[in-house]
Write a protein that binds this DNA or RNA. Structure first.
Lengths: 347, 347
DNA sequence: CAGATTTTGATTTACGTATCTCAGAATCTG
DNA sequence: CAGATTCTGAGATACGTAAATCAAAATCTG
């Protein structure tokens, strides 16, 4: 059997109260006594039963997610996973005393986001997870939370200078480089111009993906020629117009890399003129539309990050910060997934 | 506050004892009373506090992992992750009352494996996780465990006919198809023979990968010519000899797919004659050697399954079976990871 | 309707830890 | 050495659930 606090008390020859004072770092214990207890702890290999401790404390972890509104399918999926993690009927929700709440904010509105962060902080939650927008107001709001001791994790889009404690998302420069590596190999041998469609270059993650991608395309023996970046505002309608013109006007187009959202528009443009489809088409994030396009051969590969993993990871990490415990960085690393038609997860 | 059993009792107008009888499906409750209690449960949205329940039951989950000995780097990594999951100082180990033990068995020895399974079953563990060998003895042993009500999960290599409750590993046919898709695209335009190096075709996962790969290569406009499969017994020395001869004797070799282990030998052979390296080299599993080869450009892509995920997933799933609760299939799905030089996880 | 049987209530103890109180012991201060 | 101060001990209570006992009530059987 695992040793309990009672065993520690007996082993150290002190009372339960003293063991408690040492274990919970309370004042009023002589240094010598403290050491006796700690020696007993290591000798017996005691580890606190976290479940019992939380029961006794009737502690619960309030975690607030602040996510953008709107019709972005990835954000929708993320939202669904957050709700699922917080569901007390699930393992995480039930066993770990979570109280997850979800605050929607208008997409890409820095002022509203900063206000939502301040409001969320008022409730003194155990942690806050937020999809950051790259703006000084947001940076300052996160800084205020951190200063008040509330751990903040950024999701998907990072803001390293804000003082956030953790980022749950992919390395977007590496994602861009990965897209570049795939593009080079998928076009091995041949040359021709390559187009990039972004949402907006004011978005940090889009800028980063672009820089990684451009980097790799410029390297190596035969350099691929990158066309000027098109910005579609993550809007399917605008993306469709841009992609349609692109395909019509650049006859020898070798590849397209869509690094933002609005891919439904790109897919429509591609299926409207299948005979002019470039040799390699890459885009980001799995959704019903992108899955279908991959299966139909309209798209060659999809880069993705797992929204379920992001939601679970953010909760685990914020909990660990709240408790002052550690976590496994390898488990919390969000992978850059590459999906081809053949390794698509079911569903 | 979340409702407790006391609230249920008050709401239903019955005693605590009766609530307990209903919740834990004990006998001696009239159908009508049972329904009153269940109505109160749904009305108040009661969910059992699993942590408190486990504390009261002083339940702990003994989970045995049966893993092959030997110098396979993937199995080493898997072993390390299993030990980490079982460590009571970690979240999973601490919060979830796990008692994980690890039984090593000689690699590829069906008789020893069957004996180990029987021995593990004697202790009546909450669950058993095993890397299956495709043999009737093993199938029978797993069947006996299942018959005794002990849930078994196969890891990495499956044995569907055995009656195992769960498989934690990748779909190897899909992995082979994925490799085929990458090979086709990496060789786009050009033709030439493609070689496959397997460990042994008596291994189910190797056979499956081969069949998926061959399938994809045969499809499509320009068929790639598959050379007869080489079997290297997962042994670096033998693989090196095979690969060396292959590179020397097939001048127009377009690609190599190594679907088993022993890749250190392949990498040595490739670096010995870098000028004759085929255009596309694919292999399985990340290890210090394969990482380095990817970074050096000797290998183009690595297909992988995350051993940490496999270990954690097996524990979660076996726990759920032991409790009769459900789990999230999407979370437990082991992905076919594709790593290029650019999306390699650090470390 | 008496007696047997089934169902229900009331109460207690336990799980491992946290937190509090109050008294007593040990140590320090002047 | 008295008095103040700091440490320590013993005990109680709580967290939410499980599991048991025993008595009382309700229902069924013949």
């Amino acid at each position: 059997m695992r040793p309990t606090v009672h065993d520690i008390a007996a082993e150290a020859g002190v009372s339960l109260a003293t063991v408690d004072r040492v274990l919970n770092a309370r004042v009023g214990v002589r240094a010598e006594t403290r050491e006796r207890v700690q020696a007993a702890v290591t000798r017996l290999g005691y580890v606190r039963d976290v479940a019992a401790a939380n029961l006794a404390k009737s502690r619960s972890y309030a975690i607030r997610f602040i996510l953008p509104d709107g019709d972005n399918p990835f954000m929708h999926a993320l939202k669904a996973h957050v709700l699922q993690v917080g569901d007390p009927a699930t393992r995480l929700g039930g066993l770990e005393r979570l109280a997850v709440s979800l605050d929607p904010v208008p997409s890409l509105d820095a002022v509203a986001l900063a206000a939502a962060l301040d409001r969320a902080g008022e409730q003194r939650p155990a942690g806050i997870a937020v999809v950051a927008v790259d703006a000084p107001e947001v940076e300052a709001a996160i800084g205020r939370l951190t200063a008040r001791g509330i751990p903040v994790a950024t999701l998907v889009s990072d803001l390293p200078a804000s003082g956030r404690r953790h980022f749950a998302g992919i390395d977007n420069i590496a994602a861009g480089r990965t897209a570049g590596g795939l593009m080079r190999r998928f076009l091995s041998g041949r040359s021709g111009p390559v187009a990039v469609i972004a949402g907006s270059l004011t978005l940090r993650d889009h800028r980063e993906r672009l820089s990684g991608f451009a980097d790799v395309l410029a390297q190596g023996a035969q350099a691929l020629n990158l066309l000027p970046v098109l910005e579609g505002g993550d809007d399917p309608v605008r993306v469709e117009a841009l992609a349609g013109r692109l395909i019509a006007e650049v006859p020898d187009l070798a590849g397209i890399y869509s690094l933002g959202a609005g891919d439904q528009g790109l897919i429509r443009a591609l299926s409207a003129a299948p005979e002019r489809r470039p040799q390699a088409v890459l885009l980001h994030e799995l959704s019903p539309h992108t899955r279908q396009a991959l299966e139909a051969g309209l798209v060659d590969a999809v880069l993705a990050q797992d929204p379920g993993h992001i939601a679970r990871s953010a909760v685990r990490v914020l909990r660990a910060f709240a408790d002052g415990t550690s976590f496994d960085p390898a488990q919390e690393r969000i992978r850059i997934d590459i999906f081809l038609k053949d390794n698509l997860p079911p569903g």
